[in-house]
């Protein structure tokens, strides 16, 4: 290290400070230009509720020693299959969401176990294997969506009657049904109570899980595999448990995401979904080897706030949509930073 930064700064991490400063600057511009704070805040909260569980899904993988789960799309695919099946049966409302989650979770358990088994055999390359397994699965599923035997006319292409559409609108089925549950307004800010509760409730459950025997064992095996061996713990097993958990949460996460977004996105949509989620948890303060619920919540809040405010704020200053570019830089810069610090 060439420049000695104050200890507090180093502990928190320079990138995190830059990101927080960027967010503050965005809000400053928003105030200066008299933008509606209520609308900004409503958007922020909605996006936190929408994306939170996908971020939370990464936590068991990190705590279980699998690193950043770039294979999140594997769980997402399970959830999407659940959505499509529930839509195909035409189940509306909360029941539809529940059915989608149920099917998604039922799929995610064996799939997650298989994923964990593979990661055990490819130790040291989990992140790379996860990335490309996710990519391969998403592109393989694209073929499946095209050939799948779904006949419900609201799902398949109007012409030819074969192959699922790329986006399935949920309007009138279970569009925002969780968000709207007990939804209320405070000072013009809309609170999507149901979705927010789902996120925070799952956060609590995961926190609780890591204080049970199984959760403690998973974290201990990650923290020191040789210690675990001496304590009679097989870290191959705990890693599979972590993998199942991350995949299951990924499946649940995409169902909540889809109902909040109002569309189920198929084909290549899940391809890059792991990356922003990973950026969230890292921005929150997690490392490749350690993460907490606080990291999940803070990170999601910070990163999603930037994404929401960047577009309306910067469009007042700069011609064109810079938010996507900013997202690329922040998201991947954060991941790069974490990768170069891991193991130090």
């Amino acid at each position: 290290m060439t420049i000695r930064l104050p200890a507090a700064v180093r502990e928190f991490g320079l990138p995190r400070i830059l990101i927080a400063a960027f967010l503050v600057a965005l809000f400053a511009v928003a105030i200066a230009t008299h933008m509606s704070f209520a609308i900004l805040l409503t958007d922020c909260i909605a996006r936190v509720a929408r994306n939170g569980i996908l971020v939370l899904a990464l936590l068991p993988a990190i705590q279980g020693g699998l690193g950043l789960n770039f294979g999140l799309p594997i769980g997402i695919i399970c959830g999407l299959i659940g959505c499509v099946i529930s839509l195909n049966f035409g189940v509306h409302g909360v029941a539809g969401v529940a059915l989608a989650m149920g099917v998604g979770v039922a799929l995610a358990v064996p799939v997650g176990a298989a994923y964990g088994w593979l990661l055990n055999r490819t130790r040291g390359q989990e992140m790379m294997v996860g990335t490309y397994l996710g990519f391969a699965l998403v592109s393989g599923m694209s073929i499946f969506w095209l050939l799948a035997p779904f006949r419900n006319p609201t799902l398949v292409w109007a012409i030819g009657g074969k192959g699922l559409r790329t986006t399935l609108a949920l309007t009138g089925i279970y569009d925002r049904v969780l968000d709207r549950w007990l939804q209320f307004d405070v000072a013009g800010v809309t609170i999507p109570t149901g979705a927010l509760l789902a996120f925070l409730g799952l956060c609590f459950l995961v926190w609780l899980f890591f204080r049970t025997r199984m959760g403690i064992t998973i974290a201990a095996a990650r923290s020191n595999p040789r210690f675990a061996l001496a304590a009679g713990i097989s870290d191959e097993r705990t890693r599979i448990q972590a993998s199942v958990l991350t995949t299951v949460l990924g499946a649940v996460g995409i169902v909540v995401y889809s109902q909040s977004f109002g569309f189920v996105q198929l084909y290549t949509a899940p391809l890059l979904m792991a990356f922003p989620a990973i950026a969230c948890i890292l921005i929150g303060g997690a490392t490749v080897t350690r993460a907490t619920i606080a990291h999940v919540i803070i990170g999601t809040l910070l990163f999603q706030s930037i994404l929401t405010t960047a577009l309306p704020v910067t469009s007042q200053v700069i011609e064109g949509d810079i938010s996507e570019t900013a997202r690329l830089i922040i998201q991947n810069g954060m991941i790069l930073y974490a990768l170069t610090r891991f193991g130090k």
Binding site: I216, A220, S223, N224, A230, A231
Partner: peptide, 18 residues
């Protein structure tokens, strides 16, 4: 350090874990 302890965890958890 290698086998005996979980360095990042608390004293109480280290004592009770086995």
């Amino acid at each position: 350090r290698g086998v005996g302890l979980l360095g990042e965890e608390s004293v109480e958890l280290n004592i009770a874990l086995s």
